[in-house]
Design a protein around this nucleic acid. Structure first.
Length: 567
RNA sequence: GGGGUUGUAGCAUAGUGGAUAGUGCAGUUGGCUUCGGACCAACAGGUCGUGGGUUCAAAUCCCACCAACCCCUCCA
């Protein structure tokens, strides 16, 4: 069935009266902030200027002439306001949501195949809450792409070589034998803490330790058994990350390692440099790409000592991706905004050497705390597991407070909901100033608030026995509360929000939508009793609740959040 | 020096041309013999960084400036 487009209905009515083209009318129609004004509005200011009439008078004049079986009209302050007839709105909303269920809100916008670079965590380092934003954002991009019809393969790319590896191993080597054993749980935290301690020790005597690490690097290069040991540890560290991805229910289709990209680059370098002689040039012993753009400058890919930099490995990584995913043309990179310039350079380079590929950077802000930036090179870190455990403890406490039994599944659904919601609720461009006490407050604009509204809906639906077939016999002629109207209206908004969130991969649009939806549902819940005597009111409201639940579940699914049965 | 992002109430955040700038936390006050109170209702709190400009209309567009953060040939 075709979903109802109320904006179009309104503009069709206006088109008969107003001397403007349809596109113009459509672009001017807005939703009033104050619902008292109506559901849709059209400002007449531009028209009044053209016709040299006072806006108030003109708006009143036009609204008098309008008539429609779907709307009632009014005018105020130079706006023509349209209110959708409640019985019509509720009937159409329920019908569409119940019929489409998990497909409600889906729209076919994109049929491409994408590979998404996400989960940018290096093995033999640590996973902190800055990474969490990256991981969760990547999963959102994957989910929204799937929702609008695209195919997407999220991949992880880990740096298993480089100075951080040596630094990690340098400290690890000093540990007593019993502390070198990889623990059974919180493996990533164990790896991370070694890196953190290495950093602290390093700072104590930079000169001396730098020399030690350089020596160790040479030793490793000449000793295959050390290489083997480090390789083993890196794989274990990578496995620990994969486990975190699993517990967060993050989709990762496959993984790539920096060492693979390095090998691949050495395979293709000769041909590459030969083919693009003018592009890759030598500068002070290093090899740079001359991007022929004064803003982008030179792009270094190989150091003067011969070591490959990220640029080189990203060139070959693209090849690796295409080998694994044949016919792949579209690449999305979920990477923090500090690399904006680097990616601008890289994309420019790709436009020359891989002209038939498309690249898009989903740039996200960092996570800061009051102590300073959450960055892997510096101190003051908030490890993933510490954040998770603190939330777990508080959620468990709240459950017991509410007289519910401890349930591992529910604790996880709520806790991971909190973690994801916190990471996705802020505009991508912004840095998040992270405050743990705010994340532990489960009131107001939070994931538990949204989940709670869903739990309430489920709880009512559990109490009654009703079937979708009742839909055909619903009676829509009773005196509606305004909350019923607003709830139906908000459910309808979902389709538009999906499109907005897809354009530019803006998770916060959907997060805010779930908050608004939950908010209006909670208002509905307090003013509109459902399990009432009157059968026709009861059944219509039950369907409205079911429609709400379908919409909320679909929206939260895109964010990777589940609604528990009880909480 | 050049480039990018951000600046909205004590804190956090939404709003990119439209009505009285929306929301949450913190503060004050009210609501459980009730389909679940992680809720609802109400009060108070704003020079939308500053100064110009464009427009019937500017937090939103343009210009200049200020502040914070990030990046800019050999870090990842």
């Amino acid at each position: 069935m075709i979903s109802m487009d109320y904006k179009k209905l309104f503009s069709d009515v206006l088109l008969d009266i107003i001397d403007l083209d349809l596109d113009k009318i459509n672009s001017e129609i807005k939703q009033p902030i104050n619902p008292e004004h109506g559901d849709l509005s059209f400002p007449v200011f531009e028209l009044s200027k053209k016709q040299k009439k006072i806006p108030n008078v003109l708006a009143e004049e036009i609204s008098q002439k309008l008539s429609s079986k779907y709307f009632s009209f009014s005018s105020i302050n130079g706006y023509i306001n349209a209110k959708i007839k409640t019985s019509f709105l509720i009937k159409e909303t329920i019908k569409e949501a119940i019929e489409k269920k998990e497909n409600f809100g889906k729209i076919n916008l994109d049929n491409n195949l994408y590979v998404i670079d996400t989960f940018n965590a290096n093995p033999l380092k640590m996973l902190h809450i800055g990474h969490l934003r990256n991981i969760v954002t990547g999963d959102f991009v994957h989910n929204i792409l799937k929702f609008v019809g695209a195919d997407s393969k999220p991949i992880s790319y880990g740096g298993d070589i480089g100075t951080h590896v040596v630094k990690w191993y340098w400290y690890y080597k000093k540990l007593p034998e019993n502390e070198k054993i990889i623990p059974k749980k919180d493996v990533s935290k164990w790896f991370g803490n070694i890196y953190l301690k290495a950093g602290i020790l390093f700072e104590e005597d930079k000169e001396k330790h730098k020399e030690e690490i350089n020596q160790l690097q040479i030793e490793i290069m000449n000793n295959p058994s050390l290489q083997k040991e480090i390789k083993y540890l890196a794989i274990e560290s990578q496995k620990a990350y994969n486990k975190i991805g699993e517990e967060l229910s993050i989709t990762i289709d496959s993984g790539f390692l920096e060492s693979e990209a390095e090998i691949k680059f050495n395979e293709i370098r000769e041909e590459l440099f030969k083919k693009y002689k003018d592009l890759f040039i030598e500068s002070e012993g290093a090899i740079v790409a001359d991007l022929k753009d004064k803003e982008l400058g030179y792009f270094i890919i190989i150091k003067n000592n011969g070591a490959l930099l990220y640029g080189a490995k990203d060139i070959s990584l693209l090849k690796l991706k295409q080998e694994r995913y044949p016919s792949l043309k579209n690449f999305i990179y979920v990477i923090a905004s500090e690399q904006d310039f680097y990616l601008k350079q890289l994309f420019k380079l790709f436009s020359i050497i891989y002209p038939d590929t498309n690249h898009y950077h989903v740039s996200h802000g960092l996570i800061n705390t009051s102590e300073g930036k959450m960055k892997s090179r510096e101190g003051g870190h908030f490890l993933y597991e510490d954040f998770r455990d603190e939330i777990f403890v508080n959620v468990k406490k709240k459950l017991i407070e509410n007289g519910l039994l401890e349930n591992e599944e529910i604790i996880k659904e709520i806790s991971f909901g909190v973690m994801k919601f916190e990471m996705l609720k802020t505009n991508l461009n912004k840095n998040i100033v992270f405050d743990i006490s705010q994340a532990l407050d489960f009131q107001g604009d939070t994931s538990p608030y949204v989940q709670y509204s869903g739990v309430r809906a489920k709880s009512i639906l559990r109490k009654v026995d009703f079937q979708d077939s009742f839909l055909n016999n619903l009676d829509y002629n009773y005196s509606f509360e305004k909350e019923e109207h607003l709830l139906a209206l908000k459910i309808n908004d979902f389709k538009e929000k999906v499109i907005l969130a897809y354009n530019g991969y803006k998770s916060h649009i959907l997060v805010n939508y779930t908050l608004e939806l939950a908010h209006i549902f909670n208002k509905f819940y307090t003013t509109c009793p459902v399990l009432v005597e009157d059968e026709k009111i009861k059944n219509t409201r039950l369907f409205l609740i079911k429609s709400f639940l379908i919409t909320l579940e679909n929206a939260l699914n895109i964010l990777g959040i589940k609604i528990p049965e009880k909480m």
